[in-house]
Amino acid sequence: MSMPVPMPPSGGDEGVDATVRELLLLMPRLVGRAKRIPVPEALRSFSLAPRHLSLLAYLLLDGPMTVNELAARLEVAPTTVSLLIGDLSRKGILERREDDRDRRRRIVAIADVHEPAISAWLAPGAAAWRTALAPLTADQRRLFVDTLLAYEAGVDAERD
């Protein structure tokens, strides 16, 4: 038996409650669809997890970068990124090389042999986002992203 979802008083704005209901139904479907995107055959043996996907997406879309740059974009500690990179490097998915401008720094990139499979894996999601976001203005796209970030923060606050 399902329990009703408690809704806060609407304060006269019935539209917000209707939208919340719609999103409560939509979000699990979106997550479910994302989870069903098959890992390409060439990558299946690597046991890649969602934490790897974000890192790979940044490297694919923005090109090679340093550990600190990746950590800043992923909003995690550099040590966390170093562990992920070490794991993916040992599997041959990523390559680390010296930065030509500063030999003390290491640049991380997707190994050429795996780039086509990773690109094919991420392409459908990127194409769907482009289709959904293209009709919006820059301000509307920013509002959409800010709304998702506020939702994420709200969910995190509820857990604490």
Rank of each mutant, 00 (worst) to 15 (best):
Asp160Val: 13
Leu136Phe: 14
Asp17Asn: 09
Ala77Thr: 07
Thr137Gly: 15
Pro64Met: 04
Thr131Met: 04
Glu115Arg: 15
Pro38Trp: 01
Val113Asp: 01
Leu30Ala: 01
Ser54Asn: 02
Pro116Asp: 09
Ile37Ser: 06
Arg51Cys: 08
Leu83Ala: 11
Leu94Cys: 08
Val16Gly: 00
Thr131Asn: 05
Met3Tyr: 14
Asp62Glu: 15
Ser82Glu: 10
Arg96Ser: 13
Glu14Met: 14
Leu143Ala: 14
Met65Asp: 00
Leu84Met: 14
Asp156Gln: 11
Leu143Met: 10
Leu133Val: 14
Ile37Tyr: 03
Val20Thr: 14
Ala126Ser: 06
Ala71Val: 06
Ala134Arg: 14
Ile107Ala: 01
Ala77Tyr: 08
Ala111Lys: 00
Asp13Pro: 06
Pro64Asn: 00
Gly125His: 05
Glu14Arg: 11
Val108Cys: 15
Ala132Asn: 00
Ala111Thr: 02
Leu48Gln: 03
His52Gly: 01
Leu55Tyr: 14
Ala157Glu: 15
Ala109Val: 02
Ala57Thr: 00
Ala153Met: 04
Leu24Cys: 13
Met7Leu: 15
Lys35His: 06
Pro8Ile: 06
Val76Met: 12
Thr147Gln: 04
Gly63Asn: 11
His52Trp: 07
Leu59Ile: 10
Pro135Ala: 11
Arg51Leu: 08
Leu133Gly: 13
Leu83Tyr: 09
Glu95His: 14
Ala57Ser: 05
Ala34His: 08
Leu60Trp: 11
Ala57Asn: 02
Asp100Met: 06
Arg103Ala: 09
Thr147Pro: 08
Leu55Ala: 15
Ser2Phe: 11
Gly11Met: 04
Ala42Gly: 10
Phe144Asp: 00
Arg33Trp: 13
Ile93Phe: 02
Glu115Tyr: 07
Ala34Pro: 01
Pro6His: 11
Asp112Tyr: 12
His52Pro: 01
Asp139Ser: 15
Met1Ala: 12
Leu60Ile: 01
Ala134Glu: 09
Asp112Arg: 15
Pro40Ile: 03
Leu53Met: 07
Ser10Gln: 12
Arg29Glu: 05
Thr19Ala: 12
Arg142Glu: 09
Pro40Tyr: 08
Met1Ile: 01
Pro50Tyr: 03
Glu158Arg: 14
Arg141Met: 05
Trp129Lys: 05
Ala120Val: 00
Arg97Gly: 04
Ala42Phe: 08
Gly92Arg: 04
Ser54Asp: 10
Ala128Lys: 10
Glu158Pro: 00
Leu143Gln: 13
Leu48Arg: 03
